[in-house]
């Protein structure tokens, strides 16, 4: 009991610190309501927050960019058109290599997923913006959506045969007692690892930004040069991480789709 209340105290204290200090490294992840329009649906607080705003911005910027880049659809493409076609080609080859021809119907979904995460990740690098993909709710919702969809596709394609997926071919029958539960747990861990990977990468990067930026302010004009230099380097690294994690998230979606369609 005592430890319980103690733990709550520390949590509250931490929360208060986060609220009070704009320099706290976790302050940037706080979800705040925008405006004072409360939207409650079935008792759920669905008010418009900064997270919602930046998801809308990501979607709008991504759509706007693609539409603007492809407005000419010239045979000899403009620079932006090359970028847009490059994105298309990247995802198309990803789907082709990892899922095969059966993956074509899912291309729009996977392309949307990739572009949305890519823009959410990279827009989060703009100072003062909000890192949507550093919210576990957001990444987990995407992961669980993919997980459920892929499982449904698996059952639609193979019916009850899909359960064979949980038993590796060629293993002796008696090992089923151990292997099937292990495979099931491994399968269930997919949405967790998928969402945590993206979430953790983004969170770590942004905490690092904030801490290093804090050093720059604390050390002043002369001493702050070193952390500022490091910050510049980290920014480049984070740009790589943002693109890489969007890529990894998408490629793993492809791999899961492949498993559901081909079963190994």
């Amino acid at each position: 009991m005592a430890s319980d209340s103690n733990g709550g105290g520390i949590g509250e204290e931490l929360e208060q610190q986060v609220h009070e200090s704009p320099f706290h490294p976790m302050e940037q992840f706080e979800v705040r309501q925008i405006g004072n329009v409360d939207i409650f649906i079935f008792g759920l607080d669905l008010s418009f927050t900064n997270a919602s705003l930046w998801m809308v911005i990501s979607a709008v910027v991504a759509t706007g960019f693609l539409l603007f880049a492809m407005r000419g659809s010239a045979i000899v493409p403009t620079r932006l058109q090359v970028v847009a076609e490059g994105l298309y080609g990247l995802v198309a080859s990803m789907v082709r290599d990892n899922v095969g021809n059966e993956g074509r119907p899912f291309f729009p979904f996977i392309f949307t997923l990739f572009v949305f995460i890519l823009f959410a990740n990279t827009l989060a690098l703009i100072p003062g913006s909000f890192a949507v993909t550093a919210q576990i709710v957001v990444t987990f919702l995407m992961a669980i959506l993919i997980f459920v969809t892929v499982t449904v596709i698996g059952f639609m394609r193979h019916g009850w045969h899909f359960f064979r997926f949980f038993f590796p071919e060629g293993a002796p029958a008696w090992t089923a007692v151990i292997l099937i539960p292990i495979e099931v747990v491994s399968y269930l861990s997919r949405p967790i690892s998928l969402s945590v990977r993206l979430f953790a990468n983004m969170t770590v990067g942004h905490v690092l930004f904030k801490i290093l930026a804090g050093f720059v302010i604390l050390l002043g004009v002369v001493g702050g040069i070193l952390p500022l230099a490091v910050l510049v380097g980290i920014t480049a690294l984070e740009l790589l991480v943002a693109v890489l994690q969007a890529y990894v998230f998408t490629i793993l979606t492809c791999v899961y789709l492949h498993d559901a369609i081909h079963m190994h």
Binding site: S189, I192, S193, R197, N201, L240, L244, Y247, V248
Partner: peptide, 23 residues
């Protein structure tokens, strides 16, 4: 891109390890 740096690969493995156990 996928294993262009070792840290990303290491991170992938670490997350796989933890998520399996956590689930």
């Amino acid at each position: 891109l996928i294993d262009s740096n070792g840290a990303a690969a290491g991170f992938r493995v670490a997350v796989d390890l933890i998520s399996g156990l956590a689930v």
